[in-house]
Write a protein that binds this DNA or RNA. Structure first.
Length: 575
DNA sequence: GCCGTTTTCGGCCCGACTGTTTTCAGTCG
């Protein structure tokens, strides 16, 4: 089950969308949106809060608090159900297509009765959109492109969503009688950025009770296949989960096999064949006699093939086997190596938590340091001013060292403008402990313009980190088309770190870009870009992505001791 | 629908781009 906060967030967001689509009061819709975000990002479990507790959440007033209580009490919200009766769910789906907003979606529904992406594709194909007011050839093209982008991610879902499901199922099955071991495998264990289906592995002597148990979980909507060795279900949200049960002595071989990737497995099996062995999910065997050699742990299987244990994040057939055979696998960065988060927001701009709450939550994660980097004035909608950021700095200085002796850095996330310029003049920038700089608009400039823009940001002596460098949003927006080799070279030359943004919608840079960038000797910063306390744990996905990029802790500046980090942030400037 | 204290009513995220217009609506960040 999703966290109650997320269920409520989704419900309030849905209501906000429905109000918007039906042309209701825009401010009311925004109020619901703000409340949804605040609840989703609230640290306490809403299902344990009373009316007063709910009212303490910013942007939640009496009306919404009562609606939340109604939902928690009855599992339903009459208001939302009434709205759903007017606007089918498929119309909401339409506004997730880039370029299609509430107005156009409503028009499509009212004029052409379109209420799903498939119906929209049919209508475009039949040229039915041409006659609609406000729709032209270019709009059609943009919609098609948007749909293609969505379908490119296909049925795959974001890493964090899959992880939530997997961890819940692992927890549930671990409690079943006879379950000796239980974990998730597959692309999730390899920390791929999107997940097609979830693979769960269990070690047990008797599979029956576990196969039974998974079909009876509240999250299970449909049983696709139900056998002795394997059961497949579909969750209420449409995610397929495969459960495999193995004898405990085959655990290692099974884990290796079901973690993949397919390409990695093929390579490993080739090596087995060369040794006159045979490798399957049940173990490593002598090819001739069929006698089992090892199967209990992954380490044993790899070792018999002359390989060290290969971390799952590397198992993509990108040279990890060859490196393993030479005993030259990198000592990958671990989440525990991270000493601090260098890109985070508060409610001074578009975050939903106060400075105090963010700092407290960060300290609880055991960080040695933590940077607050709210948006700067050029992102006009954030309404940042010199006075506001300076007042924040004063607060940051007051809180410095007050929570588990965690050091606070006062920074900002600058906006890289169309010409590569940033928000404040040099002397003002000099007052920050660090500046992240990111592209937030003008994504469609030419390749040359985009490249020049990023290079100029790197050359800025006050910019220490380029935030979400490609600006892609998984399944929603392609990254910008810049010459990233030139950018990587410039980063290495100017001592500017590249961010690995840990937010599951971004994971930017992605693994492949990291692999390219590291060859230039670039340093990286794994940051969450947290806009609420619930985003701080996304760090694990950033670290997973860094691992997929073969990074060690030396490559990542926020594993460094504070003094060394501070030297890096100065980029060779004095003072 | 939420918020605040120079407001308990009247504000609420502003600017730019795009594609469709014939002077601007819709969408996005």
């Amino acid at each position: 089950m999703a966290r109650p906060n997320e269920e409520v967030e989704a419900l309030l967001q849905e209501y906000a969308d429905l109000v918007t689509i039906t042309g209701g009061d825009a401010y009311k819709a925004r109020a619901y949106e703000k409340a949804a975000r605040a609840i989703g990002g609230h640290h306490a479990d809403v299902s344990r809060l009373d009316l007063k507790g709910l009212l303490d959440i910013p942007n939640v007033g009496k009306s919404i608090a009562e609606k939340v209580l109604e939902y928690l009490r009855t599992g339903r919200l009459a208001m939302v159900e009434e709205a759903r009766a007017v606007i089918p769910a498929g119309v909401r789906e339409l506004i997730t297509i880039p370029m299609l907003g509430p107005k156009k979606a409503l028009l499509l529904y009212e004029e052409l009765h379109i209420s799903s992406v498939d119906e929209l594709l049919d209508a475009i194909h039949d040229e039915k959109l041409r006659d609609l007011k406000g729709f032209g050839a270019k709009t059609e093209e943009n919609i098609l492109h948007g749909i293609a982008l969505m379908q490119q991610a296909g049925d795959r879902i974001l890493l964090n969503a899959a992880m939530d499901v997997a961890e819940q199922i692992v927890a549930d099955l671990s409690g079943v009688d006879g379950c000796e071991r239980c974990t998730y495998a597959g692309s999730l264990r390899r920390m791929r950025e999107t997940i097609g289906d979830v693979d769960i592995l269990v070690a047990a002597a008797r599979s029956g009770p576990l196969m039974e148990a998974i079909t009876e979980l509240p999250i299970t909507a449909e049983v696709i296949a139900h056998g002795e060795k394997k059961t497949s279900i579909r969750t209420t949200k449409g995610l397929q989960v495969d459960l495999r049960v193995l004898p405990a002595d085959a655990w290692g071989a099974g884990l290796l096999y079901f973690t993949g990737s397919k390409a990695h497995n093929i390579r490993v099996r080739e090596i087995a064949v060369r040794h006159k062995y045979k490798l399957s999910e049940y173990g490593l065997f002598h090819a001739k006699s069929g006698k089992k050699i090892v199967s209990e742990t992954e380490e044993e299987v790899y070792a018999r093939l002359g390989l060290p244990w290969i971390p799952p994040a590397l198992r993509e057939d990108r040279g990890e086997i060859a490196a393993g055979l030479r005993d030259e696998l990198p000592e990958l960065i671990q989440e525990g190596d991270i000493r601090g988060d260098l890109h985070t927001h508060t409610d001074l701009t578009d975050g939903v938590a106060t400075l105090q709450d963010m700092v407290t939550a960060a300290a609880e994660r055991g960080y040695a340091y933590y940077a607050v980097t709210d948006h700067a004035p050029n992102l006009f909608m954030q309404r940042m001013t010199d006075a506001k950021i300076l007042a924040q700095r004063k607060r940051v200085r007051e809180l410095d060292g007050k929570h588990r002796r965690m050091h606070l850095l006062h920074g900002t996330e600058l906006n890289i403008g169309p010409d590569g310029e940033v928000d404040w003049p040099d002397d003002f920038l000099a007052g920050f402990d660090l500046c992240v700089a990111s592209v937030h608009s003008h994504f469609n400039q030419t390749r040359d313009e985009l490249t020049r823009r990023l290079l100029r940001a790197c050359e800025n002596p006050h910019v220490s980190i380029i935030g979400h460098p490609t600006t892609r949003l998984i399944g929603k927006r392609r990254g910008i088309d810049a010459d990233f080799d030139a950018v990587f070279e410039a980063c290495a030359r100017t001592n500017t770190a590249l961010e690995i943004n840990a937010h599951p919608e971004r994971l930017d840079l992605c693994d492949e870009d990291i692999l390219r960038a590291r060859r230039y000797g670039v340093k990286f910063a794994v940051n969450t870009d947290a806009h609420s306390v619930t985003h701080l744990p996304y760090m694990r996905f950033g670290v997973g992505t860094a691992q997929r990029g073969w990074l060690t802790k030396d490559d990542v500046i926020n594993t460094w001791p504070l003094q060394k980090l501070r030297r890096f942030l100065r980029k060779g400037r004095s003072g």
